[in-house]
Amino acid sequence: MGTWNPEEFKRTIRQVIDKMLDFNDEFIYDENGELVDVIVQVAFSWDEEKGEEHLRKRIEMGHLEKGTSMDKYNEIIEQLLAQEMALVSIHPNSFNKFVVGSRKFVDGKDWIVMFDNEGVIKTAYPPGDFDSYFTDSYHFLCYVDDLPSS
């Protein structure tokens, strides 16, 4: 485990979040040059491409409505990462895993997203004990809004 330097971690997390929210939209035009579709491609990826597995689990557990798409699940993650008042912590067992969470985020439920320093999503869900991710053995840093500009 590395040395605990909050300011360094804040800069790193800001860079990772900015990278994760760097959209690569693809614009589709017809033969007349008219825009017919926009395909939004997120810049983050899932751990070992397990996004669909996590989505099924969230639906089975009632965290998301039946029929929720992977695009909708990713949209929830994007919105959570972009929330200025979301809380930011560092995982207690690894200084390269981060947690961002927000209260009353989806349908009145608290949500978190865990990701690594490469912007790879590990999981995203409404935890049973939200506070434990921002107190106890986790290293609470700040709010997303307090992260320095990259």
Results as ranks from 00 to 15, higher is better:
51 G>I: 06
137 S>R: 14
56 R>E: 15
35 L>I: 07
5 N>G: 06
124 A>Q: 02
146 D>N: 10
108 G>P: 00
51 G>M: 04
88 V>P: 00
129 D>W: 05
59 I>H: 06
18 D>E: 12
24 N>R: 15
73 Y>E: 04
54 H>D: 10
103 R>M: 03
90 I>P: 00
138 Y>C: 02
103 R>Y: 04
65 E>C: 07
122 K>V: 13
47 D>F: 15
69 S>V: 09
11 R>M: 10
113 V>Y: 01
52 E>G: 07
105 F>W: 00
143 Y>P: 02
106 V>Y: 05
34 E>L: 12
146 D>W: 06
85 M>N: 15
16 V>G: 05
137 S>D: 14
55 L>C: 09
5 N>H: 12
93 N>G: 11
20 M>S: 03
81 L>G: 02
108 G>C: 01
81 L>E: 02
17 I>Q: 03
54 H>G: 07
79 Q>D: 14
112 I>H: 00
99 V>T: 14
94 S>H: 10
62 G>E: 06
126 P>Y: 00
121 I>P: 01
134 F>I: 03
124 A>F: 01
98 F>L: 04
124 A>I: 03
124 A>W: 00
149 S>I: 12
85 M>F: 10
49 E>L: 11
26 E>Y: 06
69 S>R: 07
109 K>D: 07
101 G>V: 00
65 E>L: 13
24 N>W: 05
79 Q>S: 13
144 V>C: 07
1 M>I: 12
26 E>K: 14
75 E>T: 13
124 A>G: 03
3 T>I: 14
102 S>Y: 08
127 P>E: 00
3 T>S: 11
39 I>F: 09
3 T>G: 09
142 C>W: 03
57 K>V: 09
1 M>W: 11
87 L>T: 08
71 D>P: 06
18 D>A: 13
115 F>L: 04
110 D>A: 05
40 V>D: 07
24 N>A: 13
138 Y>V: 03
60 E>H: 10
53 E>G: 09
51 G>E: 06
44 F>H: 05
150 S>Q: 10
61 M>E: 15
84 E>S: 11
98 F>G: 02
56 R>Q: 14
108 G>A: 02
139 H>Q: 12
52 E>H: 10
41 Q>K: 15
41 Q>F: 09
13 I>T: 05
143 Y>R: 15
29 Y>V: 09
143 Y>K: 15
1 M>K: 12
54 H>I: 09
113 V>F: 00
143 Y>C: 08
59 I>T: 08
144 V>E: 01
26 E>H: 08
72 K>Y: 11
107 D>Q: 11
9 F>R: 11
112 I>A: 01
75 E>H: 10
58 R>A: 14
99 V>Q: 00
17 I>E: 00
84 E>A: 12
139 H>E: 09
15 Q>Y: 08
20 M>V: 04
127 P>F: 00
49 E>T: 09
21 L>Y: 01
25 D>R: 07
76 I>W: 07
49 E>Y: 10
101 G>D: 01
99 V>S: 05
75 E>G: 10
58 R>Y: 03
96 N>S: 14
73 Y>D: 04
22 D>A: 14
54 H>W: 10
99 V>F: 02
86 A>W: 01
59 I>E: 04
141 L>A: 08
18 D>M: 06
12 T>N: 11
108 G>T: 02
97 K>I: 13
116 D>P: 01
84 E>H: 09
107 D>H: 09
141 L>D: 01
118 E>G: 06
23 F>S: 10
6 P>N: 07
113 V>I: 00
58 R>W: 05
19 K>P: 04
140 F>V: 08
8 E>R: 15
73 Y>C: 07
